[in-house]
Every structure is written in C-alpha cells, then in structure tokens.
Design a protein around this nucleic acid. Structure first.
Length: 181
DNA sequence: CCAGACGTTGTT
DNA sequence: GTCTGG
DNA sequence: CCAGACGTTGTT
DNA sequence: GTCTGG
C-alpha cells in the first residue's frame, strides 16, 4: 500500500512503536508516545530518532483534563486554520519469529504550550510545514534535529469541549469532534 | 557475570 | 541490541 | 490513555 | 483502590 509522492513515501503503520530488537510486540502498549526530551537516550527510541523519523498527519487530537480527582473533561484540539498538520513521529520495522514484518510508529511529545497547559501536562509535537524536510533529512544521523521538537505556537491552536463519549474506545465517529456547551 | 528491562498517557 | 541492577 | 476486572465454592 | 489489557 506504499506509494510515492515526490520523494516522500506514504504508508499505514500500527500505532505503538516496537523496536527492531523486541522479543515480542508487548512494548507497543507503552510506546504510543515518546518523550522528546529523552528519546535520544532511550533504548526503545534512540535508533529510530537517528534513522527513522516520520510525519504523522492528523486533523485534531483529544486530551482529557483532570481536575483533582473530579470527573475528567474531554477536549479536542486543532489548528485555528482548520488545516491538517503533522506530528513529529518515529517508525520501526520489527520482524517477528515467524510472520510478516510489523511496521509501527510513535508520536513525540513535549511540554504543553499556553493553550494546553490548563488541560494536560504534555502535548504532541506539531511541526511547521517549513520544517518537514529538515525533520526527515537523514543525512546527519549523529545529530537528529531535536531542536524542532518544541511546543507548537499556542496562538495558532484552539481547544474545545467535546462529549465524554470520546473516552470510550467503542465510540469512533465524526460527531466526537462536535463542541459541547 | 546473567537477568531483566527497554515506556507513556492515546483512538486501529 | 544494549544497558542497568544485583 | 480508558475500560474492565477484581474470585471461589459458604450459611451471620 | 489498583492492576491488566487493549
């Protein structure tokens, strides 16, 4: 299902990074995100950070706000422009004992910007389109462009309340994005 | 030296 | 595969 | 991250 | 309340 568009390759990978050295795929449940500040030193991420960076397209993401043990509030977050965007990601190809290679990815996280801070203590890294090429550039493996892994400008993002239906994995429909009072 | 970990807070 | 802890 | 399980074979 | 599974 891979196709070429210009010099970029598009593919559908499974969310939850499984390092090439893994004995099984269990680690994927805890590698859905990678902390940008530490990925360079983490065994599970450092090789991918050097050699297997990618862009993860999205239109919005969800977060849950927890106010001291009170019920969680669900939020959706997107760009004010309404445009889709790209998370900074890493990918891997893992070969099980028997079977087809499993290709997986993770999304890098960083500290929250002013918009996200009241909602959550982390946020995914959203890259600027002008930085896509720099992020994907594989020429200098010794120095991956970690300087790009910073919070996206808050004044270009918006957050709105959504139904708590989003908290149940059985629910997955466009109505989850509709604002609630 | 071997055994055990390797990771983070989400929507397939 | 590589590092840490014991 | 959330959802779902959580346990054993008895009569206060 | 806390752990496991997804």
């Amino acid at each position: 299902m891979n196709r070429d568009r210009g010099n970029r390759e598009f593919a559908l990978l499974r969310w939850g990074l499984v390092p090439f050295w893994a004995k099984d795929a269990k680690l994927a449940f805890s590698t859905i995100n990678a902390r940008a500040e530490e990925a360079a030193t983490k065994p599970a991420f450092r090789e991918a950070l050097k050699k297997r960076r990618c862009l993860v397209p999205a239109a919005a993401f969800y977060e849950w706000q927890r106010l001291d043990a009170k019920p969680k509030k669900s939020f959706a977050i997107a760009l004010i422009s309404g445009e889709p965007y790209a998370f900074a990601g890493l990918w891997e190809s893992w070969r099980p004992k028997d079977g087809e290679p499993l290709e997986t990815f993770t999304i890098l996280t960083t500290e929250p910007n002013e918009l996200m801070a009241p909602i959550h203590n982390r946020m995914p890294v959203i890259l600027e389109p002008k930085d896509y090429d720099h992020w994907l550039d594989a020429r200098d493996q010794a120095r991956p462009p970690v300087d790009l892994l910073r919070p996206h400008p808050a004044d270009r993002m918006r957050a709105w309340s959504v139904s708590d239906r989003v908290g149940n994995v059985r629910n997955n429909d466009p109505q989850l994005l509709e604002p609630t009072p």
